[in-house]
Amino acid sequence: MSDVAASPNRRRGIVSLTLMAGIMLVGLHIAIGLLTLVWLPYEPNAFTGGRLEGASLAHWVGTDRLGRDLFTQLMIGSRIALTVGLGAVAIGATIGVSIGILAAFASRWLDDALAATLDILIAFPTLLIAMLVVAASDTASLGSAIVALGIALSAIVARLTRILAKRVLVMDYITAARTSGSSWPKIVAIHVLPNIWPTLSVNFALQFGLAVIAEASLSYLGLGAPPPNASWGRMLQEAQGTVYTAPLGAIAPGIALVSLAIGVNLLADGLRARIDAARTLS
């Protein structure tokens, strides 16, 4: 009896540990990103020290080839990564959820066609699609990177939304809503979206992590935001030639990138565990 009663509590404890770690890591990046809007240790493009200096009190993770402060660039990198992640997920979610809901309501052949198209799109790597979209726009900018990643993510969101919405639409409470006189748009707004939201939100967190890594990859390949936007991906690329003489230049943005990606994944895991726990309760 007693261990039956204790088990949900124990599980809730683990849940909140994962969630807490995720919130702390992501929260740290958010705090740094917001801080860069009002304060930075150095002017990001000013030559504030010697070239390729090591860590010191003045330059916590040293300087780059041109003597710019790396920590300042790391901090701006947090803001860029979060902006890209949020922007890409917002665009991917808007397009993806709309298409997914449409497919869930579509006639048989349109639904089949949409589902097949989505499967093909998903078979292409996210990064490849993003690169194609960036290549199609004239200039590489922060905006084009966000739009490119958003479009690349939307197929995954659409496929998930379609499946989740279909599962909800066969429920009796949807039929009850129809016989209660609720219109389809209203049914989507008050029944379908709230019921698929928990699972979708976990997926959005995972997509956010993917977008952050993909943005770093785009920047690494020179397809991301151009200077003066400091991106972890570009920092990695710039540090490549000097990785043996000044390893911090590559290690620091690597750690920043990995910590945000892990934080977001922990957050997603924590959210999922919470949702599962709520489900077993009901």
Binding site: D172, Y173, T179, S180, N195, S282
Partner: peptide, 27 residues
Amino acid sequence: QIVFQDPYSSLDPRQKISSIIAEPLRS
């Protein structure tokens, strides 16, 4: 109006009983 067989599928789990019952009144 109709009542269904499966009491677990006929009530929206994300809605309070008040909004579930009031849905026909609102719509």
